[in-house]
Simulated scan of single mutants.
Amino acid sequence: MKNLLVTGGAGFIGANFVHYWMKTYPQDKVFVLDALTYAGNLASLNPVKDNPGFKFYQGDICDTAVVETLLREHRIDILVHFAAESHVDRSISGPEAFIQTNIIGTHSLLKAVKKVWLDEGLNKETHRFHHVSTDEVYGTLQADEPAFSETTPYAPSSPYSASKAASDHLVQAYHHTYGLQVTTSNCSNNYGPYHFPEKLIPLVITNILQDKPLPIYGDGQQIRDWLYVEDHARGIDLVITKGQLGECYNIGGINEWANIDIVKLICELMNREFAENATLADKYPHALSVLEGKAQSLITFVEDRAGHDRRYAIDPQKSNSDLGYKPQESFETGIQKTLQWYLRNDDWWTAVMDGSYRQWIEQQYSTAG
């Protein structure tokens, strides 16, 4: 039996990882630490909230003492670090929060685990600190360049990616300097259930359902490699259970799409769903464009954002060969699952968008820390 501490476990990827781990390893105990900033949502943990092997703590990763207490009280032997500010636009308008959470917060965690695991000797030989990073630390690619590998030099181009690059280096420094047992994974763009609606795919879906414009930066030809979130969780599992200490592993979807093509595909799928399912008209009476089969008419091109990277692509060859990693979802199956989830769970995303879930969750959970 393992005792996991998952930081940022109420966020999009973190919550999906918690669901995956508790389903895959029901004998383990999972403790979530999350500050519940704007993107943290306890409702995303509803599928596991009544599981006796799960417990939630509200707290800040920058509070080293709180982390130390959790490590000792629950005899944590695996820490999976998702907690991060992650939206590039927000990092451009307010980089300070990204420096605080992604750099100072990661260092706070490293100090805590060094003290408890190494200096005090709790789980000294069996611990693991897994750090979840991003492909954005590698910078941008031209259309004809090979995908990012683990040896690609770092070249971050936004305050967000620069802060993640710094945190990656800190994790490696604690491994090489102090012998902390670490692994790192760098993933491509995730999508799937519980995705905060400011990101591209959930934004397009929810805006169609509200008959709002679908904003496309610049010419929409920015290319991203898309990874279904449960495939990402499965990849992290393999890194933790099979990965070599001190190594970094790229986890990708092998699935490159231009932003404009993603948006057009979602419009087509939504048009089809509304045409084939008459109950959607009653559920979403304000979705006028898609009700007429014209979701694509909502596409609106807007000014490109500053420093917008043109292309990201992950080469997962190392994960494939060393860990046996391979995505189980194609983009066609993954996007259908995602679309169906948002159509069925309007209570989740509407509450997230108006903030009302924060009052509701106070009645569902006892938070501490």
Rank of each mutant, 00 (worst) to 15 (best):
I299K: 05
C248I: 14
V132H: 06
A143R: 01
L200T: 05
L118T: 03
L265F: 03
I266H: 02
L141G: 00
R311T: 05
F148K: 06
I99R: 15
N41L: 01
A162Y: 00
H19N: 14
A295F: 02
K124V: 03
A155G: 01
E329F: 15
L70A: 00
A275P: 01
L269R: 13
D261P: 08
D135A: 12
T338P: 10
P213G: 04
V182D: 04
I335T: 12
P153S: 02
G94Q: 07
H232K: 04
S158V: 00
V352L: 12
N16P: 05
N345S: 11
G9A: 07
Y312I: 02
G179F: 11
L269V: 03
Q221A: 09
I240F: 06
D77S: 09
L5A: 13
T106Y: 01
Y138V: 01
H195N: 12
T140K: 03
R90D: 13
A233M: 06
V204K: 02
A313D: 05
Q210M: 11
L70E: 04
Q363M: 07
I335C: 07
V171I: 02
T300E: 11
C248K: 09
I262M: 10
K283I: 15
T126C: 05
E332Q: 07
W21S: 01
G355H: 06
L79H: 08
E362C: 09
G105Y: 01
N102E: 10
D309G: 13
D119K: 11
D354S: 07
D315M: 01
W348C: 08
G243P: 08
L170A: 13
Y357A: 09
T64R: 08
Q172Y: 13
G40S: 08
Y191N: 04
V67P: 13
S157R: 12
D225T: 08
G252N: 13
W117E: 05
L323W: 10
D354Y: 09
C62N: 14
E136V: 09
Y325Q: 12
G307T: 11
T134M: 05
S44H: 12
E256S: 12
L343M: 10
F274L: 08
F98Q: 00
V290Y: 05
A10Q: 05
A39I: 07
V352N: 07
L36T: 06
G11A: 07
Y25I: 06
G139W: 04
A233W: 04
L122E: 08
D50P: 01
D354M: 09
D77K: 05
K55S: 11
V302A: 05
A173N: 10
A155L: 12
I236L: 15
D63K: 06
H176T: 11
V80G: 00
A306H: 10
T140P: 09
K199T: 07
I61V: 15
E292C: 02
D144H: 15
N102S: 09
Q296R: 09
L79E: 08
T152I: 02
I76Q: 03
P156M: 00
V204W: 06
Q58H: 02
A258R: 14
Y217W: 12
H308E: 15
S108H: 04
H232E: 10
I208T: 08
Y284H: 05
D322S: 11
L170Q: 14
G94K: 04
N102F: 06
N41S: 11
Q317A: 15
K2E: 08
I262F: 03
A368M: 12
W360G: 11
K29V: 00
R72G: 04
M270C: 13
D144G: 04
K23L: 00
N189M: 01
P202V: 02
I208M: 12
Q181F: 03
K115V: 02
